[in-house]
């Protein structure tokens, strides 16, 4: 049977012929109004969607935690099972980290241990909160409703004192080193005890072992001590906190001493709207040819490289 065109009784062959003879007429015939009747029954997909809305979604839009469409609780995109949403620090957790570190002067390592957050994340939270305070002082506007909306859409880690909290991140994660990405076949005698140190050596002479590359070595050590026969977790935690506090205080003192030394070299004078800071320095330390890199002042007879192509201007350190 020849295939039928909706609304017409012509065959495809005759249609083809008419296309060649008169394109305007052909366009008219192919663009004819569809006379197929509407499907009375809804499709399966639509039925499931309606069912889902009735069952799950009606009351969940104004909850504080997100409801994802995916089959798993942490899968935001239903057809992408590889994308799993990871929880972020809740606002209360961030506030507590900041107050512990800045107001109570608790060592960052100790806060990290207590709240089970990576110490680098603790440092980042403190820095960002500090920036937020700075912005408040500057009178900048905050996109608070936006931030709240975004936080609503993400799963959040929560922490309460004294509870058995779920750790925000595991302590035994290590960054993957480029040298350890290769596939190696190392013949080893059966009697030999092949340790992590040996594995690192096999990859590269200079590569540290996984134990040493971990950013949270002390926390792992606590766990190791607790797992021993007569290990006391509480005692080792206390020891760790004490050591962290001492180390941080020593570091803070050293920083204070350095800045004091620097301040002694600077004479401050308030004049009108601005303070003038006069720093003494030795203008004779200019290197062999008078062009040392860290010398004060614009240099003569040497082109500035800052406009050169490919010069990276992203700062590598923070003040």
């Amino acid at each position: 049977m020849a295939p039928r065109i909706c609304g017409t009784s012509t065959t495809l062959a005759s249609l083809d012929a008419s296309l060649q003879t008169c394109s305007r007429l052909a366009a008219h015939t192919t663009r004819s109004f569809s006379l197929t009747c509407r499907n009375e029954k809804i499709t399966k997909n639509r039925y499931e969607m309606v069912k889902w809305i009735k069952e799950r979604a009606t009351n969940s839009f104004d909850k504080s935690h997100p409801t994802y469409l995916g089959p798993h609780a942490d899968q935001p995109f239903p057809s992408n099972p590889l994308f799993r949403s990871q929880s972020v620090l809740s606002e209360s957790m961030k506030n507590r980290i900041y107050t512990q570190v800045m107001d109570h002067g608790v060592a960052m390592k100790a806060v990290s241990e207590e709240m089970q957050v990576d110490v680098r994340r603790v440092a980042a939270v403190v820095r960002l909160k500090e920036l937020e305070h700075q912005w408040k002082l500057e009178g900048k506007k905050f996109a608070t409703p936006y931030a709240k909306a975004v936080m609503k859409m993400l799963p959040q880690s929560r922490w309460a004192q004294g509870d058995m909290n779920i750790p925000h991140e595991p302590i035994n994660d290590i960054p993957v080193h480029k040298l350890s990405m290769q596939q190696l076949f190392v013949p080893v005698s059966e009697s030999r005890h092949f340790t992590r140190e040996d594995a690192a050596k096999a990859f590269h002479e200079g590569l540290l072992s996984a134990d040493k590359r971990s950013p949270q070595r002390e926390l792992i050590e606590i766990e190791r001590q607790a797992a021993e026969k007569d290990g006391d977790r509480a005692k080792s935690i206390e020891e760790f906190r004490k050591e962290a506090q001492e180390a941080e205080e020593a570091y803070a003192n050293e920083l204070a001493r350095k800045s004091e030394l620097e301040d002694a070299n600077i004479k401050k004078q308030q004049k009108g709207r601005f303070e003038f800071r006069i720093k003494r320095y030795n203008s004779e330390n200019v290197g062999k040819y008078g062009r040392a890199r860290n010398v004060t002042g614009w240099r003569y007879g040497q082109a500035l490289q800052e406009r050169k192509r490919g010069m990276v201007k992203i700062p590598t350190s923070v003040p």
Binding site: R273, F274, E275, R277, I278, R280, N282
Partner: peptide
């Protein structure tokens, strides 16, 4: 605000 002067 402050202004910096370096001086030998």
């Amino acid at each position: 605000l402050h202004k910096d002067i370096n001086l030998d």
